[in-house]
């Protein structure tokens, strides 16, 4: 089986995988990092978002082999003793209910705020096109992202 090696949350990891192994499978099944989740099979729900070299990407649509040498950040890698400001804002604004879509939502939101430090409500809603949430109605997610953008210095 082909070998793959990448950096996940600052640690070098490697493994032998079938070529057809998706990045999300590599994370969940090889590395047992189950915070990144699979909610659909058509690349739409966004529960599997991770950062690849800083860009949010759906890890269900990337082969593990494509991530050779890349820097991956998952939900598990955000908190550094304390919650990341985006995580903290999600908690403060009740932007999660069941928590299943949350890791992807947080990762996607961080990418947004990195690109656009002071997004408007409309810009946030547009950005979240690739992240589905069935619990919250999005209202509090939008509020949380606005608050996090402020906290992150936007």
């Amino acid at each position: 089986m082909p070998a793959v090696s990448m950096t996940v949350n600052g640690k070098t990891v490697s493994g032998d995988v079938e070529a057809r192994t998706l990045l999300v499978q590599f994370l969940r099944e090889n590395l047992r990092m189950t915070g990144t989740r699979v909610g659909c099979d058509t690349a739409q729900c966004g529960a599997c978002c991770v950062l690849i070299d800083g860009d949010s990407v759906k890890s269900c649509s990337v082969l593990a082999l494509q991530a050779e040498g890349a820097e991956i950040t998952t939900i598990e890698g955000l908190a550094d003793g304390e919650l990341h400001p985006m995580q903290d804002a999600f908690r403060e604004h009740h932007a999660l209910q069941c928590g299943f879509c949350t890791p992807g939502m947080v990762i996607s939101a961080i990418d947004l705020v990195t690109r656009n430090p002071d997004p408007s409500e409309d810009q946030i809603r547009e950005w979240l096109e690739g992240n589905l949430c069935r619990c919250t109605g999005y209202h509090n997610i939008v509020k949380a992202i606005q608050a996090a953008a402020q906290a992150m210095g936007g």
Binding site: A43, Q44, G46, C49, S56, K58, S108, L112, W127, G130
Partner: peptide, 9 residues
Amino acid sequence: ISDAQVRNR
């Protein structure tokens, strides 16, 4: 085109 994550790839 599509969503932000798709545009990123």
